[in-house]
């Protein structure tokens, strides 16, 4: 109930100003379009680069969202309202993580027709396997992004530091996501190694965020 109250507040704020979703969706559409135009003259290449193009685009779009979701609490020091309240502070991580996950997932869903259009892939026929890859990867991305955006929210150069600090951690996650997505696009079996890597990332960073978030918030 309390968790839903925290999530609902962030979703209500996003519904009212649409800052994060608009920026993330516009960015995703433009970058996917640019990738498609870049290899338009070699149609055979389109399908090969699609998994990498899609996940690189989602990664950069997610970074835009992470900073925005964290900033909501810093404007007018609204975070103090949460810190003074008698709530378990790990709930604050879980709520921000949930909001980041929902926003990235929304952008992913909105971008599916574009992937189909630009890369000529009938993505809706593959949704069974793809949805699991999207969910597992986005869980890990959201956990890492939520943790680091809380760490950097008061720092002047947060927009520069966010990708610098998170990308090295996100690379293995994205390699796994790209490999699995390519396998689905090519109608191949999913390798359990990559699935296990995604699962391990999710467990490690969701647990780390739940434990460490409190210490990142205190002054």
């Amino acid at each position: 109930m309390l968790l839903w109250n925290l999530v609902r507040k962030d979703l209500l704020l996003e519904w009212k100003n649409k800052d994060a979703v608009l920026a993330m969706t516009a960015f995703t559409a433009l970058v996917l379009l640019l990738f498609a135009i870049a290899v338009e003259s070699i149609p055979a290449l389109l399908r090969d680069i699609a998994p990498g193009a899609v996940w690189i685009t989602y990664l950069f779009a997610a970074i835009l969202g992470f900073n925005r979701v964290a900033m909501v609490e810093r404007e007018n020091n609204a975070m103090y309202t949460l810190l003074v309240a008698p709530i378990d502070r790990s709930l604050l991580f879980i709520s921000k993580f949930t909001v980041n996950f929902l926003l990235i997932s929304l952008v992913q869903v909105l971008s599916l027709p574009l992937i189909m259009l630009f890369f000529n892939i009938d993505i809706f026929l593959m949704m069974g396997s793809l949805s699991w890859i999207f969910i597992l990867t986005t869980l890990g991305m959201s956990a890492i992004g939520t943790l680091f955006s809380a760490m950097l929210v008061n720092i002047r150069m947060k927009d520069v530091l966010m990708p610098l600090l998170t990308f090295p951690l996100l690379v293995p996650l994205l390699i796994a996501a790209v490999s699995l997505t390519r396998a689905v696009f090519n109608g191949q079996e999913l390798q359990s190694t990559w699935v296990n890597l995604l699962l391990a990332y999710d467990v490690i960073f969701i647990t780390a965020g739940t434990i460490l978030y409190e210490f990142l918030l205190e002054e």
């Binding site: 507040k9 209500l12 704020l13 009212k16 100003n17 909501v72 404007e75 007018n76 020091n77 609204a78 103090y80 309202t81 003074v84």
Partner: peptide, 12 residues
Amino acid sequence: FLTHQSLYYHDL
């Protein structure tokens, strides 16, 4: 708790 900053969400 109250400070000289008003601790509110300005879009709400």
